[in-house]
Amino acid sequence: MSLLNEALVVVVRGVIAFITLLIFTRVLGKQQLSQLTYFDYILGITIGSIAATMTTDLTARAWPQLVGLITWTGAVFVLQWITLKWRYASKYIDGEPTVVIMNGQIMEDVLKKMRFRVADLLEQLRTKGVFDLSEVEFAVLETNGQLSVLKKSQYQPVTANDLNLPTNYKGISSELIYDGVVVEQNLQQVNLDRPWLEAQLRKLGFNDPSEIFIASLNTNGDLYIDAYKDRVKNLTDISDYH
């Protein structure tokens, strides 16, 4: 078999593995990476590894590897279904959130059991903006390894509700222009039309939507516009290297 043929086989197998993975990840749903448990993470690596082997290991037939890929994806799918339907299984498979600080007290035995060092705890607290242990009322280690922190009430930020201040509704903004192209569907959703948008652009000194990188409209009716041509006169350079 010539080198060219070998390369061709790798390319074809690679394309097949790529599309298969794409289909399987769509089947497995939209679980975010940040929500993955340690086991999910390992499952992902295993499935990726099988796909990689399927692409480059020409000493083995691709079919058993595709079967392996289907089996692992099927197992993940079944596991997802079980954890969705059966709470006990979910607790056993995904684990449970664990309280590591309770009423301001660090639970040393829990940390030891989970092989979680105090240094790890402090690091996670710092990433949550907590630099003083005395500010923490509760800290819970979630199944995805993230720490959720509840500060003592005296250290929590004041909200508008605390001050009995009225607030306006704030929803999701709609993108009206994306990469120079008007998103007609979003315009219709907010009951506006192209002439309105073009009039707004003219007011701001733009002649055509193609000059705009992104334009979005928030629920208060404020239009945010960013043009391709930036009008910043003095650019701040944060780099240390020149």
Binding site: M1, E6, L8, V9, V12, R13, L58, T59, R61, A62
Partner: peptide
């Protein structure tokens, strides 16, 4: 060979060669 090269082991092709 061109028909089967994607579905069989390369070692098997080499063995027959």
């Amino acid at each position: 060979i061109p028909r089967i090269q994607y579905s069989v082991e390369r070692d098997d092709i080499n063995s027959i060669n």
